[in-house]
Design a protein around this nucleic acid. Structure first.
Lengths: 308, 308
DNA sequence: ACTGTTTAATTGACAATATCAACTATAATT
DNA sequence: AATTATAGTTGATATTGTCAATTAAACAGT
């Protein structure tokens, strides 16, 4: 799609979305108070130690208009002014009890509106909505919410997970290492063997998710002679540098060393210097190497092992 | 995430997004004409055989206000009224030459604004933006733009495609047929064999995409004795019923019968009655069956063949 | 063809919101 | 202490939103 087309699509969306949200807002704010009165009331409640300045900035409103409207709200007994100790020019604003009850009604109404918007969506579709919102938040609004607390780990594989992990491997190693589609085919083989011929009781997978989207993975797969293999350690580029890789690695190693296995090994390539450093720091030793020639460039495969 | 949290996230996004777009609009419409004048002018231009009624509906404006504003635009020589032949109460509105040039400037400004918004994004990130917008368009705004003209077919496999196709197979057959993760593992094997051990010259893949997102697939894979196998026919549920499956199938069959092969076969299960009908209509005959027991339920595999 | 009912557009009156500039009291800076 | 900046207020005015009444044409039913 050309840039011109992209811009057209975005502009159309902006028109439609703001129209839709505008309608919702209109309905919600359509109370016995005026539109601006309610907006300001909500803002006074939202902001702690709120001043008139805060409001005119937050809502992009003229200071004079805000001043007048606040004084109207005070007459209506929804808001009260407290003297600010720090700055005798300014007042601290807060909602009265009666204001709070008005607000609570408004929030109920607004929540009901949004609920109505998504009530016919399946939980899977709601996840898609939230993911898309997260994408636009980061990409368009420049808001990052990669806080670790939103990232969850789970152990069961859901339908589609395997494909998603293969996809991520394919895309990532193509972009960062220049591997071709043969590599992705090879990853398919590793998953096929683990899923279809693996040991359901001993094999363990960790999927790191944010808002329902996979952003990282690792697994411990049982092998002969009480050994196990560490596989598919992966963290999406956008989520690196927040300790997610270490977290996944630690989880996997904790399980591997918990008594069920006597050793662990992994396969990587000489290229992955940073990863090799991590593995060596954790006690892995380089054991053997082999040639890889069909991933688009000549590589040296590396087997690393740690005995418990 | 709880529904309450989801609603909170959505409401926050709505506030932020409308604020952002509002700012853009403000900047764009900040010309020598008033906000409403420009909005109405743009609408007159956008709508063919436009009447005042159309505008007050499209922009959700009071009919009286629209009437006054249009008459002002006429005085400014940006818009002109033509008598409507059909309805002598109404007038047809259209922009004058001078109106058109004003509009063209506005569009330039608006496009530049959006360009500015996305100029620092990589093409991959822009695709993510458009995909998210598409998602919100369907899920929130209820807009379906599944018109066939937006769907493109391509033949090369890009990094991540294989994983995405496996993911789609895993999710789809889990949802629609109740297959377990073993099925997804089996799909991995089929891709592994085709990608790593396939015949790059004879094998051919078709990927159906919409806005950069895969929505369907099919492939013809060369086999021994000048036979070939039809594989991975898949159409996302949201895009069924628009002939995409047939389109993919026809493409694949056209290639298979073009001289390079003497026969084609495919594997499916007895369960897939609709698909089997399609294949039989195209001349495939049921050839043999086999048992499948590890996909979460007992199934009868079916091989179908067509000789050319 | 006549009648009552809608409908597109207009107009008047007025309310709500937006914008600007002037002004007061206080804070911050030098 | 003088200057400059800031929070809030007030007045004037422009723009936008809302409602009800009016006109002329269209429409539906008899």
């Amino acid at each position: 799609m050309h840039v011109e087309e992209q811009i057209k699509v975005i502009r159309q969306f902006n028109r439609d979305y703001t129209a839709e949200i505008g309608l919702l807002e209109k309905h919600v704010l359509n109370s016995e108070y005026t539109f601006s009165e309610t907006r300001i009331l909500l803002e006074v409640d939202r902001i702690d130690h709120c001043t008139a300045k805060n409001i005119s900035e937050a809502l992009n409103m003229d200071a004079g208009f805000v001043s007048r409207t606040i004084n109207r709200l005070i007459k209506l007994n929804l808001v009260e002014k407290l003297k600010s100790e720090k700055d005798k020019r300014a007042f601290l604003l807060q909602t009265t009890e009666s204001g709070k009850s008005v607000i609570s009604e408004l929030h109920k109404k607004a929540n009901a509106q949004i609920m109505h918007l998504i009530e016919n969506l399946s939980s899977e579709e709601r996840t898609r909505v939230l993911h898309s919102i997260g994408e636009l938040n980061t990409l368009i609004l420049g808001k990052n919410s990669n806080a670790p607390e939103y990232i969850t780990l789970r152990n069961e594989l859901k339908p589609g997970d395997v494909g998603q992990l293969i996809k991520m491997h394919g895309e990532l190693y193509s972009k960062e290492c220049g591997y071709n589609v043969c590599f992705e085919g090879y990853v398919c083989k590793t998953f096929y063997e683990a899923i279809v011929h693996g040991n359901a009781k001993l094999d363990k997978y960790w999927i790191a998710e944010k808002e329902g989207v996979i952003i990282g993975s690792i697994a411990v797969i049982a092998k002969a002679h009480e050994a196990c293999q560490l596989r598919w350690l992966l963290v999406s580029p956008e989520y690196r540098g927040i300790g997610l890789g270490i977290r996944l690695f630690d989880e996997a190693m904790a399980y591997a060393t918990a008594g069920k296995f006597k050793s662990i090994f992994l396969e990587t390539t000489k290229e992955q210097e940073k990863a090799i450093q991590l593995y060596e720091k954790a006690g892995f030793k380089q054991k053997s190497t082999y040639k890889i020639d069909d991933w688009g460039k000549s590589l040296t495969g590396l087997v690393m092992e740690k005995l418990f």
